[in-house]
Design a protein around this nucleic acid. Structure first.
Length: 526
RNA sequence: GGCGGCGUGGCUCAGUGGUAGAGCAGCGGUCUCAUAAUCCGCGUGUCGGGGGUUCGAUUCCCUCCGCCGCUACCA
């Protein structure tokens, strides 16, 4: 089973199970998924990890409120998260919960290794403790000298011995690493932020807490548990079996090729995490990609009008692909974006219904109507006509560059403008619906070209709209020429060798294909 | 406060030292295979305000206004 295929290990941030998945977290998973699917298509041995972050005090509190044990609570939440990701067609290979034994085992091994290396020390920590939050507060957080969330309570000055990680020892090494690996932090705009931060000097950080039962006990001092941030980052290696009896997967996939995270947690991933790995003597991830946030603009506006819709219900109504398309096209991955129902409908109708879905419909309809679905002799037709002016080799290469660097929006814009528009224009210019009256053979040539266009589109949208892509590919018997599982972007450049005559294999009703994206009536202005 | 970014037609954005561009929306036309889709045509926008450099700036510099990010422990 082992192969010489290059491996590609991609992760997303693990989520707090305090609340349900929202558009922000969905944005991250969808982007990572597009990348994972793209890499799989192109021969990488991909391992795609997601998970939930469960060793927090709040989880314990919330579970208690619900009258549940913390484990029962997080397991139930994990089930719900996994269901949403599955509904969105997110193709993660693994899902780790940090309450799992494999995570605990790995964390213990890791913290012990860092301890043995001399980067962990015990220090008395004095701080203002809020009973309401069960947490220490910094001076900055206070309002009127009290916790902003619990103004009725006095803060207690508590002195506690905690273990600290000697983060301060890694500043120079981190800076050197950023310099030697310019692609470590992406996108570019995040790079200076982190660099400035580290350059300004790092402080040692407390990495354990005393007196909590929910969490991972420190192996060299069982009265303490590992503080959530220190353990959370470790999911990227514990999920691979680090610290277990069998570390072959860890050895195979680590270091990660990219950690996909939100921009708010950049510093943890670009400073703390690499320092932790250095301390433990492990290789550093190759890159960290910090995506932007998606704001729920439409929600805010319509809330007062009483017509609020939860964007997370959109995929249930319109399907996962339109949902995915919206975020991948409308929101530049490295920057911030907005969700609004109005914009969703606009994009859905214009890009998906009018361009993509309609090309599918008109192609199949004419094939069925004029030739009973069988383009006899089409194997001998070289579909060069619709491609005139298109350099598909160059296009494939250009798109590979864009997708590989998370420029999904630009990639989709390019596919639509260069391929879909070209195909629709080709139909308009050749007018097969007129040609059929005078020259069936010429018409067949046009339709064979259109079939080829569908094949090309199917391949190009595969990482983004996996369900639609497959429907396109199954519209004709393309599978007989090249299996869907092995198509790659370069496959678009030329039709498969030894292809059969194309035959419509799409499901039909009354000789017509089903509308892939039924138009949505625009929401009424109020 | 410091560092960085942004402010371009209704919306989302691209762009260059030398007559301002795209997509969507809108308007008009066309075709009829198709989900009233496609295709063609249509935008006199002070390129945030002001100043400067220049033969000439939206593009370079300064300043002002507005918005945003980061500014080290709890996603």
């Amino acid at each position: 089973m082992s192969s010489d295929r290059p491996k590609f290990y991609i992760t997303t941030a693990i989520d707090y199970p305090n609340s349900r998945p929202h558009i922000g977290t969905a944005f991250e998973k969808i982007g990572a998924d597009a990348q994972a699917r793209f890499r799989r298509m192109h021969g990488y041995d991909v391992h795609f990890l997601m998970g939930n972050d469960e060793n927090t005090i709040k989880v314990d509190q919330r579970a208690t409120e619900l009258g549940l044990g913390p484990k029962a609570y997080v397991d139930d939440m994990a089930l719900q998260f996994r269901q949403v990701w599955s509904d969105l067609n997110v193709s993660n290979d693994d899902f780790i919960q940090t309450s799992e034994p494999r995570h605990h085992d790995g964390c213990r091994k890791f913290i012990q290794a860092v301890y043995d290396a001399g980067y962990i020390f015990k220090k008395a920590y004095t701080g203002l403790y809020c009973n309401g939050c069960e947490a220490f507060k910094t001076e900055k957080e206070l309002e009127n000298g009290r916790c902003p969330n619990h103004q009725g309570q006095e803060l207690k000055r508590i002195e506690e011995e905690n273990y600290f990680f000697r983060l301060s020892a890694f500043g120079d090494r981190l800076l050197a690493h950023y310099r030697d690996n310019p692609d470590f932090i992406q996108p570019e705009s995040r790079r200076n932020e982190v660099y400035n931060l580290v350059e300004s000097g790092l402080q040692d950080v407390s990495i354990t807490r005393k007196g909590f039962s929910w969490g991972i006990p420190v192996p060299f001092d069982p009265e303490q548990t590992i503080y959530v941030w220190f353990d959370a980052l470790l999911n990227y290696i514990t999920a691979l079996g680090y610290g277990s009896d069998d570390e072959t997967r860890f050895e195979k996939y680590w270091p990660a090729d990219v950690h996909v995270i939100g921009k708010d947690i950049t510093r943890f991933h670009c400073a703390l995490w690499p320092a932790m790995l250095m301390a433990a003597g492990l290789p550093l991830p190759k890159s960290v990609y910090a995506h932007g946030f998606v704001y729920n603009k439409g929600q805010k506006m319509s809330k007062s009008a009483g017509t609020a819709i939860d964007p997370m219900t959109v995929y249930r109504t319109y399907g996962a692909d339109p949902f995915r398309y919206y975020f991948l096209k409308e929101c530049v991955f490295g920057g911030d974006g907005n969700f609004s129902e109005e914009r969703f409908v606009e994009l859905y109708n214009s890009d998906l219904a009018n361009n993509l879905g309609n090309l599918y419909s008109r192609t199949l309809s004419m094939c069925v109507r004029y030739f009973g679905g069988n383009l006899e002799g089409s194997a001998a037709i070289d579909p060069v006509d619709w491609r005139e002016g298109l350099d598909l080799d160059a296009l494939a290469a250009e798109l590979e560059g864009l997708v590989g660097t998370f420029e999904f929006s630009q990639a989709l814009v390019t596919i639509w403008s260069r391929v879909l528009d070209t195909a629709n224009r080709y139909v308009q210019n050749t007018e097969p619906f007129k040609l059929i009256k005078t020259d069936p053979d010429a018409t067949k040539v046009v339709l064979a070209n259109m079939a080829d266009a569908l094949r090309v589109v199917a391949i190009l949208i595969k990482p983004f709209l996996p369900a639609t892509a497959e429907i396109f590919y199954r519209a004709f018997n393309f599978e007989d020429a090249e299996p869907w599982s092995t198509v790659r972007y370069p496959s678009i450049a030329r039709p498969p060798m030894n292809r059969p005559d194309w035959t419509v294999t799409a499901p039909l009703a009354d000789g017509k294909p089903f509308p892939l994206f039924p138009k949505i009536q625009p929401p009424k202005e109020s």
